[in-house]
């Protein structure tokens, strides 16, 4: 599914990029095992048009309706949602921690902005992740070049705008190298 060649259908509106939705879940009762991550993640849909995006999205549960420790990832086709992927190795992500009530709406607004090319940072955006956790949920947007402050600033400002976040919500930037050192994402 990850490598499937997708084309816009007749009458469909093409996106700038093709994307894959991925899903990963940690089995209940099991501790985190970073080496198992790549085994537990799979592609659930691939799309290249607005209409295919909605089809894929509407067939998935909304984050607010999911249970347990899991993540939904939406990445450009060809980029794996892993720190070690070529596209991600010098990159980082903006992290926003959300009270659970806001997760579904924020995720939807984020992915619409991403596939609609609202971030205006060339091809810097790699993907987005929503992480369902015990007491809060976390939304992240990953970009290629952690050290490009012009890019990361613009992503942050667009994120704040599209998520309609109050000024009190803290956004944190984390380089993937730091996550690798910490052995944890958040």
């Amino acid at each position: 599914e990850m490598h499937r060649e997708v084309k816009p259908g007749s009458g469909e509106h093409p996106l700038q990029y093709s994307y894959c939705f991925w899903y990963s879940k940690r089995p209940p009762g099991r501790p985190a095992d970073p080496s198992a991550f790549e085994k537990n993640i799979r592609v659930v849909a691939t799309f290249i048009s607005v209409e295919q995006f909605w089809k894929a999205y509407s067939h998935m549960k909304r984050p607010g309706d999911l249970n347990g420790h899991c993540d939904i990832h939406l990445f450009k086709q060809g980029i794996k949602p892993l720190w070690e992927d070529e596209a991600n190795k010098d990159g980082g992500k903006w992290i926003v921690r959300l009270r659970k009530h806001f997760t579904s709406r924020c995720w939807e607004n984020l992915i619409m902005a991403m596939v609609g090319e609202q971030f205006m940072v060339g091809d810097e955006v790699c993907g987005a992740v929503v992480s369902l956790r015990f007491q809060e949920d976390i939304i992240s947007i990953w970009n290629k070049t952690a050290n490009n402050s012009q890019v990361t600033t613009r992503i942050r400002d667009t994120l704040r705008r599209v998520l309609n976040l109050p000024p009190t919500v803290i956004m944190e930037y984390k380089k993937h190298n730091q996550s690798i050192r910490d052995k944890t994402s958040f």
């Binding site: 009458g11 209409e51 609609g116 090319e117 609202q118």
Partner: peptide, 21 residues
């Protein structure tokens, strides 16, 4: 080059199309 950009309103309108179901 030119980028394909869609705003939120347009994406939501497309959601109602039969092609999106």
């Amino acid at each position: 080059g030119t980028r394909i950009i869609y705003d939120r309103l347009f994406l939501l309108k497309c959601r109602d199309s039969p092609l999106s179901k």
